[in-house]
Amino acid sequence: MEKPHFSEILIQKLHQKEFLNDEDLEKITIYQKKGIFSLRSELLLMIYFSIILFTSGIGVIVYNNIDSIGHLAILSANFILMLVCFYFSFKKAKGYSNDEVLFENPLHDYLVLTGSLLACIFLGYINFQYQIFDDSYAYVSLISALLCFAVAYYFDNRIVLSIAITSLAAFIGISITPKSIFQNEVYSNLQLTYSGLVLGIGLLVWMEYSLINKIKIHFHFVYTTFALHLLGVCIIAGLLSEQWYVFIPILLGFVYYFYRFSYRVLATSIFAFMLLYGYFGINVLGGKILSFIDFGPFYELLIMVSPFYVVASIYLFIRLVKQFNAKKNASVQ
């Protein structure tokens, strides 16, 4: 089934309007004749999902068989597989460097990932079986985190880095999954909110330090994404709690920092979520303040005025986004 290709029509039009010169057009036609249909991302994602499926299955099997005879066999298989993964990873790795180091074959990145996940399973199991740290799973999370950080930095693997960060969060006691956010785990406990703030700020400090000293600069996206969401959720939780006034300066600092940061790296997702958390936080704050004033008779007035408030905020957002896009378009590399 041959259909006139959407982009071909547009490219012809661009050419007619003399935005494209003949030379460009020729280059494009040669490229299009090759009919490149790259399945690279799809196949790599498939590998990623297969590894996640495999390791989570292994994890469940290990724990289900903890009291049975076969567990030693499974566990040694796990351990050997982990060693094999790391053996080949070390063999193929080019060694540590502060810059980005890529494997020649992208599949080796996933070998590293498999090894790290199996190592985490292994650590958790030994602790359970031999009670090294009593019943405290926090320390296992910490050790997993340290191991994953080391692996992530040595092999330059962002996926392992994100596992390391989540393990670190688990050590503190927050499980940052969409599920836990919906179940209000972060909201219900002010202690956790404060530890979340500390972790988020700590990650940002480390990221700033690495940026200045040029240590794995490309890791910044993982750190900021995690810190942004962690801090955002914690601040909203804090604003809803008893000690809400403490979080007003933190909210302002949060918005200011991420506003500057998103301009620095021109990351649209960071900018967008900064606006989201900031707007949400300000509205929560507004609601808090309104709840102190007895509005009784003015409720209708408030409802009548609210569209103007929304229009004003939309106007503001359009301005902000326009500014950001202009800056981003002006400095496309």
Binding site: S41, L45, G59, G124, N127, I163, T177
Partner: peptide, 21 residues
């Protein structure tokens, strides 16, 4: 792509490390 997968790992952080906790 690596960034996307890293974010995916963050989003379903139900990795074995966490189940153990």
């Amino acid at each position: 792509l690596f960034n996307a997968q890293a974010v995916l790992s963050l989003a379903n952080a139900n990795t074995p490390a966490l189940t153990q906790s």
